[in-house]
Design a protein around this nucleic acid. Structure first.
Lengths: 333, 333
DNA sequence: GTGATAATTGCAAACGATTACATCATTCGA
DNA sequence: TCGAATGATGTAATCGTTTGCAATTATCAC
């Protein structure tokens, strides 16, 4: 069974001082005499005392943990972002709580719950549909959007429209004129923003986004494969495809190759994200890189700042994307 | 700024009862008269009161959160397991804390810290090197190993040796006699266990694991590509390769294809894990499936049981694996 | 030597809930 | 009708820290 762990009382008794002094010796070492500090530390050693964070946090009115609400934990896109978050949060003294909003029957209720349970000092939200205006009325801890964004909420995002434009321009420069687009779910801010960037770049070249050539997906692998099926059914096929996520690009290429279509021989494919596997596919996937670890790290810094300043608003940050040229794009014909 | 949130005092005052009654009305509704219960609930509505979990947990001597220690958050293998964990932990009233032990300068110290900080009610540990005997001496909350295992600690694992044996037998049945193996990091329990299972299956067929044909990797994509380079340098090449993880298989196949070697034409490849992308590679990867979501869910159940029974030991569970036949294996020559 | 200033330390009140125990009002059986 | 059992509520202790304030002692300038 769990033996009772030493409390501050025990340390105080052993070192012959009051609990107040023990507490100070540990959290504000400069405010106690060196000799007492040593005595206390010795007693801490001996008892193996570790402060109970529950009590400490109750008194200090902070919890020491921040919550990340991700739409789908099983999506590898997030893992590296979370890793980045964790790497700056831990040293800053925060634990990282993670909740999967997909796995949750009522994610909005959960968010509301976290707002006033006092369980967390701050939130990073990756799903723009979550923090709706009604919800934001109530009192709540600092909240930062990441990847997606909404209204005036502070956020860490990537330049999605520009990324899409870069992708399209790359296809254009390679000589493609007939370009398809596999989108994310309609209504999603990322989807719309990339769609708009793609359309803009196309327009600059005097082209338009052909309705029959834009396929709606959901960022997941399977939806990429479905888009491929629709592409295959086309009488008049585009020579290049811009997929709004690498996962979809992966599903798209896979299904095409199953059907005996050569990539990039018969069709060029460009993705978005640069997930780890992208460079190891055959052909290696040309894509727009989102620096995912950076996103996590920046988000963590911004949120910690907001918490420190007890402010609900904070700066937003936009991170640049980058074209990674690999093998899945070549000149048509 | 953050307006002060209502406390139990406010509810008590508004509904004209004592705080004790409010507390009871909320946590033990049957112990209070219906009329008062209604009055309390009405006051709760009006004030928007939500109990402060810090205070509650301090008093109840539990924290309501459990911690998962994963060796590498950026590895997509874990995301689905975490998702499974989360899906049963949330309804059970536990939050899921996640820490990346790779990102941590001193993971052992962190584990020690969690042992007595009273921050968590239980731990799920995915890294067998962490809970060393010295550490386990001290008082600590219930701990469950998952995927990896160590000593007598309760664990949720998969039948690794059997999985490896199934993989090898599948290659054997397809007619291969010259079989290579890309392992995980040496010393790792998964690595050794799969190695042993593979050697066993080979022995049944009168074959042995050729030293020159076993390449050491680290479960990551890049190490698979490195193994491929070593395979390419071989004068006398095996016709099939069993990779101890899908990521390595992916890196292996990719590098081979880059070098102009056909898979499965010139060499068959079989993986382990069945990560999501496996079925969308070209060729689609034949592999041994680990039901990752199940692992997470079972681990959560077992751990919650241990916590409920205040017991440090608990049953261990072994989950079956399954051969997924796809396209990366065919008969040689 | 004396009063003022600064450096240490202890006392006790928070933090915000839960719950053992005491109290009071009912109900019921004899 | 009375004593006991039952049920509903309140009082106050408790969980394990931190910290404002006061008290004590040491230091220093004069």
């Amino acid at each position: 069974m769990r033996q009772k762990t030493a409390g501050i009382q025990d340390v105080a008794r052993l070192s012959g001082v009051s609990t107040a002094t023990v507490s100070r010796a540990l959290s504000h070492p400069e405010r106690v005499a060196e000799s007492t500090r040593e005595a206390v530390l010795r007693a801490v050693q001996e008892t193996g005392y570790v402060a109970n964070s529950l009590a400490r946090n109750l008194r200090r009115r902070r919890t020491g943990s921040i919550l990340a609400l991700v739409p789908n934990l099983a999506n590898p896109f997030f893992s590296q972002i979370l890793s980045g978050l964790s790497s700056v949060l831990s040293p800053a003294g925060y634990g990282l709580l993670i909740a999967d909003t997909l796995a949750d029957p009522d994610p909005r209720a959960r968010l509301a719950h976290y707002f006033d349970s006092g369980l967390v000092d701050g939130l990073v939200v990756f799903d723009a549909t979550l923090p709706d205006p009604a919800l934001m009325q109530r009192a709540h801890p600092p909240l930062l959007m990441a990847c997606e964004w909404r209204g005036e909420l502070p956020s860490v995002t990537v330049d999605n429209a520009e990324g899409a434009a870069i992708a399209i321009r790359h296809l254009l420069e390679s000589g493609h004129r007939r370009i398809a687009h596999v989108t994310g779910p309609r209504g999603n801010v990322l989807t719309e923003s990339r769609l708009q960037g793609a359309a803009g770049a196309l327009a600059e070249a005097g082209l338009a986004l052909h309705d029959d050539w834009t396929f709606t997906g959901d960022f997941g692998i399977a939806s990429g494969a479905q888009a491929a099926a629709r592409w295959l059914a086309l009488a008049d096929r585009p020579t290049a495809v811009f997929c709004a996520s690498d996962e979809m690009a992966c599903g798209f290429m896979g299904a095409l190759q199953q059907a005996g279509i050569a990539v990039p021989g018969e069709v060029s494919v460009i993705g978005f994200d640069d997930i780890e596997v992208a460079g190891h596919l055959t052909p290696a996937l040309t894509t727009i890189r989102q620096p995912r670890r950076d996103i996590g790290e920046r988000a963590a810094h911004l949120l910690v700042d907001m918490i420190d300043q007890r402010s609900l608003m904070g700066p937003s940050e936009r991170i640049a994307v980058e074209l990674i040229r690999r093998q899945s794009v070549k000149s048509p014909g």
